[in-house]
Write a protein that binds this DNA or RNA. Structure first.
Lengths: 114, 114
DNA sequence: ACCCTATTCAACCGATCTCTTAATCAAGCA
DNA sequence: TGCTTGATTAAGAGATCGGTTGAATAGGGT
């Protein structure tokens, strides 16, 4: 449920239109028509983008009369950020270790400043 | 160059195999053969995954004899994390505003606690 | 009832993705 | 010169993506 959803999330974020939709939704809820307005694209295409975002859990939708207001959801973004952060942390630790090694070697060579 | 690269980066991260490759590379450089070993997949397929990662700037490759050691690069991951963080910040600010509004309304109603 | 608006569903098309196998390139070694 | 190893390129199959148009659904308003 987690790894798969990471794939769905990153795949959803890979499209500029969908990122723009999320950017708009970060400012507040919006209907499909409102979301579609800035794009040179059919309403149906936007609707399909929303379905992709919904499947990734990045948005949820209510119903009020014939409108389907979309709301951004943070959980998948949190997961994505956590995944990236995790490997950045591993990488940083590796650099720290490398740094220690370099210092050690310099000390052994009696070199206090490279 | 930035927006397009975000798309390339997220698209690259959308594949579990490529995420696993990055996870391995976070521990240190590795050759294509070494990277391919854990996967039930041809060497060529892994090579193609590496090309995707390279095009996104997520890895760079050296040459030492017939080996092509792969190294992870943090810059695109930083960009991706920054993009996500940006909208999480917008969202948090929105909640803060909403929170203030709720407090204001409660105060107007003479209600000092839920 | 009828119509209007908001949205989705369905079918299709061309492009791209991910894998395969076969062929090719690059570098070291007999 | 050939042989072997490491890796890439090329071509193709099958699935998915991102868009289109046309028809259907959902929920008012008159």
């Amino acid at each position: 449920m987690e790894n798969d959803n990471l794939s769905l999330t990153f795949a959803a974020l890979a499209d500029p239109t969908r990122r723009a939709i999320l950017a708009r939704l970060a400012e507040g809820e919006a209907t499909v028509n409102v979301l579609a307005e800035p794009f040179d694209m059919s309403l149906q295409a936007v609707s399909q983008h929303l379905k992709v975002l919904e499947r990734a859990g990045l948005i949820t939708r209510g119903r009020s009369a014939q409108w389907r207001p979309c709301r951004i959801e943070m959980a998948p973004l949190d997961d994505a950020a956590a995944w990236i952060g995790q490997y950045r942390a591993v990488w940083r630790d590796r650099f720290d270790l490398l740094d220690q090694e370099i210092r050690k070697i310099r000390q052994q060579k009696g070199d206090d400043r490279g």
